[in-house]
Design a protein around this nucleic acid. Structure first.
Length: 720
DNA sequence: TACTATTTAATTTTT
DNA sequence: TTAAATAGTA
């Protein structure tokens, strides 16, 4: 056997990982160190050299994109398609299992997957019908709570209120939510994983079968696994399966979604003697960029420890620009992008990364003014659009009348005279009789409801029944087409003014073509419509179109994970924004922000610009801030300051607009943006003033102590 | 039911 | 600032 194609062009560490014996292996793969490469070559190695059947390989990723890429690369490396190789996302694989074993999983055969938005609607509705004061609990909080429990593998019965009435309330809602899902045959994202885990845990025979089958388990982005995902993997591996996990503890940026880096350590405990391979040679960035990234991440305490290096040159210094305000920052970036294009570079090779989506606005304005085409990632995705979800809800109701989420969504869309009051009655009937809204509607229409409302409800029910009957025999595409046509959605959206309605109708047409080009998997053993709906939920489609245009890329640092660009801008590097105010308080949060910064820096291949604004308009008011502490963590030798930082203000006012300063503060010589020194808190910058005379207070952002309000009379601030 | 005024809150989002 | 949700009015 010629193993050359599988092993050539691999460095020693990569080769060690790829050819590792059939034992638990953990690969700590730094940014740009060829992580996917190792996974792909490992799979090829197992199949081609170790003669492991593709059938007994399971490869798990987090995103559909990663799964598709892995499959493509394995196939091109092996030179043949590998149909029987299971590659998919955690959710996709869990879904596959549940479809196969729906009986054992105690699910109806045509269970439907609901997305985060559906989930929130259900919870919101529950809060209302349970008459829970939603001033105290926002649907979002409850949703977060529910998902968190599920991510940890906890059902309501496992939870204890600890005598805390709020917690008790949350648990009650969680239980009620489960009932609704159970009744409607609805499964949310977290539920997919939880059920799949329970399926194996509670069915020894099934588990034995899958353990027998999947001798090798490849896991991508291992640092992002949550408790239930880890438990699932652990269960499958048992004592004889061979897990091969690839991850980077320094790139764990989803702790807030339940991801636990600790699984990297747990792995080594659960599989004693596991081989650990570190990939530290980087093929992406210049030496300077890597050194800066290493220096920043070195400030974190909880890490496995690694140091990226490259055989390449040091490259350009990192350029730091201290902008006067956010518009100045945007102008600066636009200027550099112009130079970039003028030098003959492609716009799509440049990316502007920021911490939060709100920051894109100013950047977009500047880009529009400069007529530089750009593309913002992370908007609404195709299957998440309102009109698309409406159409899907009709389709879902034809399959399953008890799907309350869909029922509620379309019962009065288009408007058909079923108002809030009528729906409210259905809700309380449904709740009192532990039945679905559909059944409640039926019961009320024949009995309780006033004539007009009853008629409207009956008309709706007849419509759904009719849709089901008339489309039963149709092909998927025609089904979708027919349902959209009969639903009245097109006429409804035609009435919407502006271009919005037209776009929506186009999207509905697009949905028909999506159904047309949808290729059901013969192995799935599902009705095409079921499969199409599952696909819509699990793979929500592209965020934004026109990837092929030559566009500058705008996205959050989170979305940039896994990507690389020759030219990168990290914008808005200010304390409070990045690290974000809400994370900076607790040490774990701060470390996660720092990892995010590490991710941001390591996206850059050749050129990296970092910029911050001394003054930024946030939430409608101007505020002042200090450069991000992460900037200070980059050693000066790698940095070139583009413009020497101008003292923020001595007399306080800038040419043009003067900052309004309350009298009392002005009297003491303070101005917004003024640098001050406090005996205990150290150096800081004045953010805000309020009050008069002896009550005057100032808000100061201290470099080390954070933001504080101080009473001016007692603070004894020294001006700097 | 639909439009308008007011209030409120404001990270990150693979599935 | 602004977007979204709620409350009030035609």
């Amino acid at each position: 056997m010629d193993v050359t194609p599988i092993l050539e062009n691999l460095n020693d560490a990569q080769r060690e990982a790829v050819t590792a014996p059939a034992e638990p292996t953990l690969v700590i793969a730094g940014a740009g160190s060829g992580k996917t490469r190792v996974l792909v070559h490992r799979a090829a190695w197992l199949i081609d050299v170790e003669h492991v059947s593709p059938q007994s390989l399971l490869a798990v990723t987090f995103t559909n994109k990663a799964a598709a890429e892995m499959r493509g690369r394995i196939e091109s490396l092996l030179g043949l398609p590998v149909q029987h190789l299971w590659i998919g996302t955690f959710h996709g694989l869990a879904h596959r299992l549940l479809r196969r074993h729906w009986r054992e999983a105690k699910l109806p055969q045509s269970f439907q997957i609901i997305d985060a938005d559906d989930q929130q609607r259900i919870i919101k509705r529950l809060l209302r019908s349970m008459e829970i004061d939603d001033g105290r609990y926002t649907p979002r909080e409850i949703q977060y709570f529910v998902n968190k429990q599920k991510d940890e593998g906890l059902r309501p019965r496992h939870l204890d209120d600890d005598g805390d009435p709020e917690r008790r309330q949350m648990i009650t809602v969680y239980a009620a939510y489960e009932e609704v899902c159970e009744r409607g045959g609805l499964v949310d994202f977290a539920e997919l994983l939880l059920r799949a885990h329970e399926l194996w845990r509670d069915n020894a025979e099934l588990l034995a079968h899958y353990r027998q089958r999947f001798g090798h388990i490849l896991v991508d982005e291992f640092q992002d696994t949550n408790a239930i995902q880890y438990a699932w993997l652990r269960l499958l591996a048992g004592n004889s399966g061979v897990p091969f996990a690839v991850g980077d503890d320094d790139q764990s940026i989803y702790r807030w979604r339940g991801a636990r880096v600790e699984h990297i350590l747990k792995f080594q405990r659960d599989f004693p003697g596991a081989r650990v391979v570190k990939l530290e040679q980087n093929y992406r960035s210049t030496g300077t960029i890597l050194n800066a990234a290493n220096a920043v991440i070195a400030h974190n305490s909880a890490r496995m420890g690694k140091n990226l290096w490259t055989e390449g040159s040091a490259g350009e210094p990192i350029r730091i620009y201290a902008a006067y305000n956010e518009r100045d920052e945007a102008e600066f970036i636009v200027g550099r992008l112009r130079d970039w294009s003028d030098q003959g570079n492609a716009r799509q090779d440049a990316a502007i990364l920021y911490r939060s989506n709100a920051q894109s606005r100013v950047l977009e304005e500047a880009l529009i003014n400069a007529r530089i085409p750009y593309r913002v990632y992370g908007g609404l995705r195709f299957f998440e659009r309102q009109e698309i979800k409406d159409a899907l809800a009709y389709l879902r109701l034809t399959l399953n009348r008890d799907d309350d989420a869909s029922f509620e969504r379309i019962v009065n869309r288009p408007t058909r005279g079923i108002g809030a009051r009528t729906v409210e009655e259905m809700r309380s009937y449904a709740r009192a009789n532990a039945c679905s809204l559909w059944r409640a509607a039926g019961a009320l229409a024949s009995d309780v409801l006033a004539g007009r409302a009853a008629k409207a409800v009956l008309a709706f029910m007849t419509l759904i029944e009719r849709l089901e009957r008339e489309t039963r025999e149709l092909a998927l595409e025609d089904k979708v087409d027919h349902v959209i046509a009969m639903s009245g959605l097109v006429e409804f959206y035609k009435k919407e003014k502006g271009e919005k309605g037209a776009t929506r109708i186009e999207n509905l047409e697009e949905l028909v073509s999506a159904a047309k080009s949808f290729e059901p998997d013969p192995a799935a053993e599902m009705q095409p419509l079921d499969e199409f709906l599952a696909h819509a939920a699990l793979e929500a489609g592209e965020g934004q179109a026109d990837a092929w245009d030559d566009c500058v890329q705008l996205m959050t640092m989170h979305s940039a994970k896994g990507l690389e660009f020759p030219l990168v801008f990290l914008a808005g590097m200010e304390d409070g924004l990045f690290p974000h105010q809400r994370s900076a308080a607790d040490p774990d949060g701060l470390e996660e922000e720092r990892r995010l910064c590490y991710v941001g820096i390591t996206r850059a291949m050749r050129t990296l610009y970092i910029s911050y604004a001394e003054q930024r308009r946030l939430h409608g008011t101007d505020s002042f801030s200090l450069p991000s502490r992460f900037i200070r963590e980059i050693p000066a030798e790698y940095v070139e300051e583009i413009r020497p930082k101008v003292r923020v203000s001595r007399s306080g006012q800038r040419p043009g607009r003067a900052s309004p300063v309350p009298d009392a503060a002005a009297e003491s010589g303070l101005s917004l943006g003024q640098r001050v020194h406090h005996r205990k808190f150290g150096d800081g910058i004045v953010l805000n003033c309020e009050g008069h005379g002896p009550h005057a207070r100032v808000e100061v952002n201290f470099e080390t102590a954070g933001t504080k309000w101080l009473v001016l009379a007692y603070a004894n601030l020294d001006l700097m």
